[in-house]
């Protein structure tokens, strides 16, 4: 058992933690899916035009599943680039 684990077991008050905060760029990229799939619902919640035989709202959400994954891929690149830069500086 490590010291950290003993402290944890004893309810040792560790307090604030130091973690790497996400970069602003990644956060902005993460905001896009929220706007597209959630906040803007009244703009796309309709049946027409039907696309590929799907009601527009369902088509919109399916399309944004793929686009959200792309957004998060971009966010991943941003974070990786920052990590590399940080370790280069040290």
């Amino acid at each position: 058992m490590s010291v950290a684990m003993l402290r944890l077991a004893a309810g040792y008050n560790r307090g604030p933690v130091r973690v790497k905060k996400p970069s602003v760029g990644a956060l902005l990229l993460g905001l896009i899916p929220f706007v597209a799939m959630c906040l803007s619902v009244s703009l796309w919640d309709r049946i027409q035009p039907m696309i590929f035989g799907l009601p527009f709202n369902l088509f919109w959400l399916i399309a944004w599943i793929v686009l959200s994954s792309l957004c998060m891929w971009a966010a991943y690149r941003v974070e990786i680039a920052r990590d590399r830069k940080d370790s280069g500086v040290q």
Binding site: C38, L58, M72, Y76
Partner: peptide
């Protein structure tokens, strides 16, 4: 229609998880 929330929330849950 309200069932569509499931599709949106699962996708966005992963977006949250990233951070």
């Amino acid at each position: 229609g309200p069932t569509l929330y499931i599709m949106a929330y699962l996708t966005l849950a992963y977006v949250v998880s990233f951070f």
